[in-house]
């Protein structure tokens, strides 16, 4: 039997906008097992962000059940949800959300500051380890605003890993990056997934979703497609292809100029 990280049943979420009630989620059932790399797709307003907020314990559903790592989180209070976020979930945001004028290391340490069980020494070790895992071992003391977008997102990914979460939730994590950097970030996610980390990845770009091993698609608050990817695009190949295209383009430009 597979280890269920996330299990939701008949999940509903209604918002009140003025006097109207808007249903963002209309009865969603979903199970995510350990080791999966799931792309959550859909147009804006389809309910995928609402789902992500609920999965990330930032929001509570109107109805339905949610078990995270075998624990029913519906019954938890605000502070208990904060503890769940602190110990079981890693977030990666579209706009990185790093603390300005703060070193990479301190940014990565941030989630551990809110865990009283972790000593200062342990905090430092874990943060260094996480930065090594995302390939930034040589940039630990760099300030966040001195880094490129791709590096900043790597720091953010390191931050999401530092508390050894059961799932990493990424919200349009490549949305602010160019194609090449996006692919590099996806290569990192694939690498992490290969190490056994479960990832939920919200995106609306099909080429990014192609790097994952399962795509689920939302429309109007309902899950309409759930596809297991048989042929996962290898990012390293995609990057090579991108390089080839660039070379061709360069040659073409050279020919034209000449």
């Amino acid at each position: 039997m597979e280890n269920k990280i996330i299990e939701i049943q008949n999940l509903q979420k209604n918002y009140r906008v003025g006097t109207e009630i808007v249903s963002a989620l209309r009865g969603v059932n979903l199970t995510i097992n350990a080791g999966e790399f799931v792309a959550i797709m859909g147009a804006s307003g389809s309910g995928k962000s609402t789902l992500l907020n609920i999965l990330g314990c930032l929001d509570k559903p109107t109805a339905g059940d949610y078990w995270l790592d075998g624990k029913n989180v519906n019954v938890l209070k605000k502070d208990q949800l904060a503890d769940i976020r602190n110990t079981k979930i890693g977030f990666v945001f579209q706009s990185y959300n790093l603390l300005p004028r703060t070193t990479a290391l301190e940014n990565v340490e941030l989630p551990l500051l809110y865990n009283p069980k972790i000593s200062i020494k342990m905090r430092r070790e874990k943060a260094e380890h996480a930065l090594e895992a995302v390939g930034l071992a040589d940039r630990m003391k760099h300030l966040s605003n001195q880094m490129s977008g791709g590096q900043q997102q790597r720091v953010a990914i390191a931050r999401s890993l530092v508390n050894d979460p059961v799932i990493v939730l990424a919200d349009e994590a490549t949305g602010n990056l160019d194609t090449k950097t996006s692919y590099e970030i996806m290569a990192l996610f694939q690498e992490l997934n290969d190490k056994g980390i479960t990832i939920g990845f919200v995106t609306h770009e099909p080429d990014i979703a192609a790097f994952t091993n399962r795509n689920i698609v939302f429309r109007d608050g309902r899950l309409i497609k759930d596809i297991q990817m048989n042929k996962i695009t290898n990012v390293v190949d995609a990057l090579d292809q991108l390089k080839d295209e660039d070379t061709l383009l360069d040659e073409f430009v050279n020919v034209c100029v000449a």
């Binding site: 990330g56 930032l58 605000k78 502070d79 977030f91 959300n97 603390l99 941030l110 989630p111 508390n163």
Partner: peptide, 14 residues
């Protein structure tokens, strides 16, 4: 505000 949001998201309590 965003810094506060981040702190809350990574487990900071009110």
């Amino acid at each position: 505000t965003r810094e506060i949001g981040l702190r809350l998201a990574v487990g900071g309590k009110g």
